[in-house]
């Protein structure tokens, strides 16, 4: 098994390049999901704020 990782002496270079590719191609989708969750939470907060203001406006009471 270890000779597989040695890659005929080029281990550092082969795993260096495949490792970086794997790292980036996994990190990007994760970042995307986080970005999507962030947008949805901000939009939710804004929607709640708007609904909040609407309620206080109806009751005529503005904190």
């Amino acid at each position: 098994m270890s000779e597989f990782f040695a890659m005929g002496g080029y281990g550092l270079y082969v795993w260096g390049s495949f490792g970086m590719s794997a790292l980036l191609m996994v990190a990007e989708p994760l970042l995307l999901q986080r970005q999507r969750r962030e947008i949805i939470t901000t939009l939710l907060r804004m929607a709640r704020q708007k609904r909040g203001e609407a309620r206080t406006m109806d009751e005529g009471v503005i904190e």
Partner: peptide, 10 residues
Amino acid sequence: GEGYRIIFIH
């Protein structure tokens, strides 16, 4: 030798 396998991602 084995080093050329990087071509498969490069």
